[in-house]
Design a protein around this nucleic acid. Sequence first.
DNA 1: CGCCCTTGTTGAGCAATGCTCAATAACGCG
DNA 2: CGCGTTATTGAGCATTGCTCAACAAGGGCG
Lengths: 190, 190
Amino acid sequence: MATPAPRRLPPDERRRQLVGIGLRMLTERPITEITVDDVAREADISRSLLFNYFPTKRDYHLAVIRAAARRVRRVVLVDGDEGVPVILDRFLAFLERRRDPYLSLLRGVGGADPEVAAINAETRAELVDGVLHALGRDPSTPALRLAVGGWVAMVEDVGLAWAADPAAMPREDVVALLLGALDDLLVRLP
Amino acid sequence: MATPAPRRLPPDERRRQLVGIGLRMLTERPITEITVDDVAREADISRSLLFNYFPTKRDYHLAVIRAAARRVRRVVLVDGDEGVPVILDRFLAFLERRRDPYLSLLRGVGGADPEVAAINAETRAELVDGVLHALGRDPSTPALRLAVGGWVAMVEDVGLAWAADPAAMPREDVVALLLGALDDLLVRLP
DNA sequence: CGCCCTTGTTGAGCAATGCTCAATAACGCG
DNA sequence: CGCGTTATTGAGCATTGCTCAACAAGGGCG
């Protein structure tokens, strides 16, 4: 797959390679179990080199998490002018395709880490912005943001549970339920 | 606080002590950062002894997580005959009181660990059962469980976000929003 | 073409942490 | 008091995160 042992890569490329390895490993295990040794071995590189590019393991993990978060946003919010049904459909499709790494990301994250929390919060906030923009609602209303944030959490939870066993319920029913829930939620807010 | 150095405790008591220390430590850091050394030091005990009671660090963590989950269930579902508003009120109160350890628990958990996932799923399932029982609805309908599960996720998310900054929205409004959302959700299901 | 200087890369080594095992000492029972 | 059970420990090993001085590959300059 990769060439046998291309040594002395330019820094950007090396960095990309290492982050890419982390992303691939996310499909099999939570990020906290991605060890420096594993990545180095996979890249055919010494541990020391990884520390040359990422001062600390946590920094490396942050880079991988940021890359994963960027992927979510790029896939779900393709451009800024789509309706909620399209956004929801893309989000569900993403969860179907990448259920395991998404779970590994959400659950494998060292919790109290403020930077990780910030990345997650930012991703969540962008999703909320996307939904509010699609709805033509004011994105600066705290109550709205709280409610739509809760809705996104519900979408995530229902989506992941449904993706674990898609046969239990037709996809359209899930979509209808979630879209309806959002409608209802908005009716209840000024 | 604790007596200086009570040695040779009976096994049950020792186990309880160690789990208790873990629970207390959960208020300050995610469980993955609770180290064997820390616990042993806090208990004034050698590392070896902890491994006598819990064959592995993971086993110890599981014991702490189980204890925390039991606490959630006991506090939220006091007895089996309460309405949803009472359950919701207790859940929110719990999140207000124990926001940090709850976050540490949710986010600090090594994600792909199947046993941890099982404990979380069970706790979630019991909450869903409690809500469905309070509603007098059939707890064996997959669609219902999916939807109510999503609602619980929303309660968790909104509750935690609101607890982080209670001034942004009156508590009654949060309660009303969440109860209304549940009502709406049920209207949409057969 | 060949020297050299930049810099990508490595290996040896340290500290912390999870874990094992034989040895010890405290408690209870006769 | 003696003795067996067993709670407890200390020494030691492997893994893992991380540091640092040394090496060598590659391009630019003469």
